[in-house]
């Protein structure tokens, strides 16, 4: 008998929670395929290491973009392999709760549930990421007080106000930390004339990226391919340059938070001033972002203790209390 599962199918990482056991898998949402035969060569961390470094016949791809499935068949195969790795077989078909961005369309919703069912799930239910994040971040969402959660993932940013176990206000944009990486790539190409890969851009963001000036700022050496000569070249990037490069996606993220605050009922809005807003998701770990959101919204921001695991833990809680919480699933309310 398979244990039921909760899956945070993120644009960047996939986490799996097993009922009664906890988090059993945390891997990048990447799959490497043989282009000629269509055979799967690697998934997860192993496939992630191949991004941008593969020979012509291998392709390492992220089948999800902006929180949505861009390649249904590849996603299904990735889910199937992930489920196999946590012990799901043809004879053990678990119930699965999957976290998805709240802004996904009906078609995308069906694509996710179909992919999970075909991959071996007996039943697949969906839950909105900000709701799962609020449960997993241990916010007191069972009380009649305003809890605001900001979930900045790889492809989406979702802000939600939650009270008494339900979403009161919601705002989602398809901008996330991959857009920040893409902005760095495009800046380096435009201003320094060198091409860098997405992994290098991510490393730059992690090393010196910030949304607001911080105390410990350093420069970074970036190696790429000169667009004119085609030869390898090194350039120095300053934190100010990176801040300028990523200002567009960062501003979009902050604007969506402000729009969510504006949608909140006044009775709940005053709670945020006392309790603050809670930041979850890997994108929220960008240096200076917390301070910049605080400055632009005048509302305190707190970082969740487990920003990367909050969403899957919230979905895991739903699988542990499936009957009591099934009203929260996306299909149940429509």
């Amino acid at each position: 008998m398979a244990r039921d599962l909760a899956i945070d199918l993120g644009t960047a990482n996939t986490l799996v929670y097993m009922k009664g056991k906890g988090i059993v898998l945390n891997e990048p949402s990447v799959i490497a395929l043989n282009r000629q035969t269509g055979e799967v060569l690697a998934t997860g961390r192993e496939a992630w290491q191949m991004i941008g470094r593969t020979p012509g016949y291998i392709v390492a791809v992220r089948p999800l973009r902006g929180g949505a499935i861009t390649d249904f068949e590849i996603t299904e195969r990735m889910i199937r392999l992930l489920l196999q790795r946590v012990g799901v077989s043809r004879f053990s078909r678990p119930k699965v709760v999957i976290c998805v961005p709240s802004a996904i369309t009906e078609v995308e919703r069906r694509a996710v549930t179909d992919a999970a069912r075909r991959a071996g799930a007996a039943d697949a239910q969906l839950i909105e990421q900000p709701m799962a994040a609020a449960i997993g971040a241990d916010l007191p969402i069972d009380e009649p007080v305003g809890n605001m959660v900001i979930d900045i993932g790889g492809g989406t940013t979702e802000s939600a106000v939650i009270s008494l176990g339900g979403i009161v206000a919601l705002e989602a944009v398809r901008v996330g930390s991959f857009d920040i990486d893409a902005a760095i790539q495009s800046y380096v190409r435009r201003e320094h004339g060198i091409a860098i890969g997405e992994r290098t851009a991510e490393e730059v963001k992690m090393a010196i990226g910030s949304a607001a000036p911080t105390e410990d700022e350093a420069q970074a050496e970036v190696r790429g391919r000169d667009l004119m000569t085609g030869l390898p070249r090194t350039v120095i990037l300053t934190p100010e340059e990176v801040r300028f490069a990523i200002d567009d996606p960062v501003s979009s993220i902050i604007s969506s938070v402000a729009r969510c605050l504006a949608k909140s009922p006044p009775e709940l809005a005053q709670d945020f001033l006392n309790r603050g807003m809670f930041l979850v998701g890997g994108g929220g770990m960008l240096r200076g972002l917390k301070q910049r959101i605080e400055k632009e919204t005048n509302v305190p921001v707190r970082m969740s203790n487990m920003p990367l695991e909050a969403v899957v833990l919230g979905a895991g809680h739903c699988i542990e209390h499936y009957d009591a919480l099934k009203g929260m699933f996306m299909g149940a309310r429509r």
């Binding site: 990482n13 945390n26 998701g281 990367l308």
Partner: peptide, 12 residues
């Protein structure tokens, strides 16, 4: 109690 990376992995 989960042993996997807390903050070393930046994106999700």
């Amino acid at each position: 109690q989960h042993p996997d990376g807390r903050r070393e992995q930046r994106d999700n």
